[in-house]
Write a protein that binds this DNA or RNA. Structure first.
Lengths: 338, 338
DNA sequence: TTGTAGGCGTTATCAC
DNA sequence: GTGATAACGCCTACAA
């Protein structure tokens, strides 16, 4: 029982002009007299006429919808990225269809299918934790649907990627610990198969060798992603009587888990062990001591990703997949400085 | 340069059947022979044919899109609610268009217009902090577009609302403080004009009078919503040499701000002052002492809201606006118990 | 500068 | 059971 919308035909009857004239008025065409356009637009406003987007899209063979798949909607990172995208897309008249893969590869495939079905104009994706095989995404690109990846991506995907310069900032973060006097530094890493994880590990190693610090693979621990994962890793270390004098954790949550367990076991942060997080979260200033971390331009990442998508959409020719690396900043707080 | 999609006509030509037959096969109509349907479906699968949703929607006069407006995408609450909605909507074949009002009334109006323009089947909204006038929303309902409000709503809106039972749980939270021995309790409230704020204040007052505790309006402070707001309120109190022995804050962020300032000024929590938060956030277990708070069934709220929307959508008759109140749980941690 | 008519891909209403 | 055909609301040659 929805109020019937007024259509272009109704308006044409009322104004005694043809539908094409109205269409022209609404599409900024040149071949229409100024006064006519004004008249049409005014009457339209008066009667509350707006072109039906479904009809328009059907005819134009586009949907003005962009599908977005993220691993999760909890935690502050992805919502903030999405928020950045929204700013750009809403300016350009695009809508976002947001779906979550819940960190599951299977769900991710489902979501991709859903988006294909609903004929989005493009797809933006950040890979789930489980995703190792990216064939489906490459097939997607084959069919001609614009794809952009961000943050959690994979070098095998033949699409643009907007990422944080993990290598560089992991290097700088580690360097910070070294300069503060740490000798025996451990790295709590994200799941190894994530490219984001690999890049940070490289940065960590580079810093260690640069300063001739002892560094073997045992110092790099595949920890996971959550606070609980950070706790577990630290617990295992302590059970083995290993207490580093510096920890570089690949996420704030990992870092905070480590700090909690250190404190529970009577160790002092930063005196006994300095702890550095990664990718600033609201948690960083709540924990005691406040956490040093690397801030990422999260919202910026969303904006850049959206802009890249729009470039793909508007470009006539196929663009060479580009990689955009975003810079961060090191935020020194109490957890690394006595 | 997008690969052309195969259409119902192509398929009809290939299979040598009429388009209507194919349409029937895809719409579970009864008047089609089993084998025919099977044949059609199989060939369709083979050729990768899927009905074009734009055409289908145009003809059915629906969009299968639900517009969702939230005040913000940062913080964990709204993303989690949305996550709950997604579960329900994606089951039912609906897509969500998510927009943020950025806590601004003006932007909120813009967003509503955008959604009207894009002809969503229904709108779900949680009001911005600034929103006092809800005429536009009532007009929306007049035009027949289904509307559901959640969390931040307003009694003047003639639409279903899915809310947390703020009154009851504010009462219980306050009661908890009283039972733990507090006598001089202050309430850090959200902006007064929010109905959510009013309901919690009522609950607070009720608990105080129930236990014959002294309670005047000075004990109820309009604090805001953020951690910073919580800090400010506490600071002002301390400057006036007022140190309550109990604080019931209307959000975890307010509570944490209060705890920080208390500690900075040498007061102990919970010994000198017990602090109770509201609406569990991830921050609650990070702060020291860990924060007692009221957990809300956040994701559940999203589900219930989505389900309500679907009921409106599927119902032929206009439904009487219903209010659904969700229950929470009191989570006792160190900040209220010595 | 404006109007006419065909088509975008479906579904629904008739006939057969 | 199946097949034509007219909508759905808009855009765009082409004609006037």
């Amino acid at each position: 029982m929805r109020a019937k919308h007024i259509t272009i035909k109704d308006l044409s009857r009322i104004l005694n002009v043809s539908v094409s004239t109205i269409s022209r008025a609404f599409n900024d065409k040149s071949d229409i007299r100024k006064e006519t356009r004004k008249l049409v637009l005014q009457k339209a406003m008066e009667l509350g006429y707006r072109p039906n987007p479904m009809a328009r899209n059907l005819q134009k063979q586009i949907s003005k919808n962009i599908g977005i798949i993220v691993p999760e909607l909890i935690g502050s990172f992805f919502p903030l990225v999405i928020s950045g995208m929204e700013e750009v897309f809403s300016m350009k008249g695009y809508q976002m269809l947001i779906l979550s893969s819940y960190e599951s590869f299977e769900k991710e495939l489902e979501r991709i299918k859903t988006l294909e079905d609903s004929m989005v104009d493009g797809i933006i994706i950040s890979l789930s934790r489980e995703t190792k095989n990216v064939d489906v995404l490459n097939q997607l690109i084959q069919t001609g649907i614009p794809l952009v990846t961000f943050n959690r991506t994979n070098p095998d995907i033949k699409a643009p990627r907007i990422i944080f310069d993990d290598y560089k900032w992991a290097l700088l973060a580690t360097e910070h610990l070294i300069i503060e006097g740490c000798n025996n530094i451990y790295h709590f890493a994200l799941p190894f198969h994530l490219s984001i994880s690999k890049r940070r590990i490289e940065g960590f190693k580079k810093a260690m060798t640069k300063y001739c610090k002892h560094c073997n693979d045992l110092q790099i621990i595949e920890s996971g992603i959550s606070l609980e994962d950070g706790r577990k890793t630290m617990q295992i270390l302590i059970e083995q009587s290993i207490v580093p004098d510096g920890i570089f954790a690949s996420s704030d949550r990992l870092a905070i888990g480590a700090i909690q367990v250190l404190k529970e076991n009577g160790y002092k942060v930063p005196e006994d062990c300095r702890v550095m997080g990664f990718s600033e979260s609201t948690l960083a200033t709540i924990i005691e001591p406040q956490l040093s971390t690397v801030t990422q331009p999260t919202k910026e990442m969303g904006k850049k990703t959206a802009e890249m998508m729009i470039r793909l959409l508007e470009s006539e020719v196929a663009l060479e997949p580009e990689t955009i690396k975003l810079n961060g900043k090191i935020k020194v707080r109490q957890s690394t400085r006595v």
